[in-house]
């Protein structure tokens, strides 16, 4: 089968898998990697992830479909999630959602015909004191008024027109990364500094720095 991941992402996938004691634990990180590459999670990606972590494609789908962030069909370049939970609702989230739907000409859940914006009503974003709030591709905007929303949409449109916006590897470009790109930096564990994963089946006794049990008891 041909690779779905690009060669660079395939290397990254192996690097991620090697950090875990059990390969399957890399499943969610790899689904994110696929979504970063393609903007959504394709069947092909799931098939290759299954192969990489040693499970069936159905198991990957099972996990993938549980989590809200994994989109199994294309979404806009900018996913705008407006928080509709209580703290935001008390501070006018309902009006903001209503306004956003009119401004973008779509109802929440839908994508604008130009493929730029997907609008969604989301749950608490851990910014409840800054209500009402929203996220564009999981980056927060606080205390958003309808006017702020219009400005935001116009900014994002012109950013897209200019073809700008950062990508992984270019974290300083400013603007909002396209949907699928979450963290602009990644953890890399240098081989010479790695302690290595702790295998659950290794049965190697206590780690080096722990005194043997009887020594501990004397304290």
């Amino acid at each position: 089968m041909t690779d779905h991941f690009t060669p660079a992402n395939l290397d990254l996938a192996h690097e991620i898998i090697d950090r875990y004691p059990v390969k399957r634990s890399a499943m969610i990180p790899l689904l994110h990697l696929a979504q970063e590459q393609d903007g959504w999670v394709t069947e092909d990606a799931m098939r290759q992830i299954a192969e990489l972590v040693g499970v069936t494609p159905a198991e990957v789908l099972g996990t993938c479909s549980f989590y809200e962030m994994f989109k199994r069909r294309p979404v806009g370049r900018f996913l705008i999630n407006i928080c509709g939970t209580l703290s935001c609702q008390l501070m006018g989230a309902g009006e903001l959602i209503h306004h956003a739907e009119r401004k973008l000409g779509i109802t929440s859940g839908d994508t604008t015909p130009d493929g730029l914006f997907t609008l969604a009503v989301a749950e608490c974003q851990a910014a409840c004191t800054e209500a009402p709030c929203l996220q564009v591709n999981y980056r927060h905007r606080y205390r958003v008024t309808p006017e702020d929303f219009d400005i935001l949409v116009d900014e994002l449109r012109s950013e897209a027109d200019r073809g700008e916006g950062p990508d992984p590897g270019n974290p300083d470009a400013g603007g909002v990364p396209r949907h699928g790109v979450l963290s602009l930096s990644r953890q890399h564990i240098p081989a010479e500094r790695a302690a290595g994963p702790s295998s659950p089946t290794s049965d190697q006794g206590p780690p080096a720095w722990m005194p043997p049990p009887d020594a501990e008891e004397q304290k």
């Binding site: 950090r19 875990y20 634990s25 969610i28 990180p29 689904l31 994110h32 549980f66 989590y67 809200e68 962030m69 994994f70 979450l182 963290s183 953890q187 564990i189 240098p190 010479e192 500094r193 790695a194 302690a195 290595g196 994963p197 780690p207 080096a208 720095w209």
Partner: peptide
């Protein structure tokens, strides 16, 4: 990571993130 501050204390801290649930 390995041999933290020159001791025999070694542990990897792995950043993992969820996907919305």
């Amino acid at each position: 990571g390995r041999n933290i501050m020159g001791t025999d204390f070694s542990v990897d801290v792995v950043l993992h993130w969820g996907a919305g649930a």
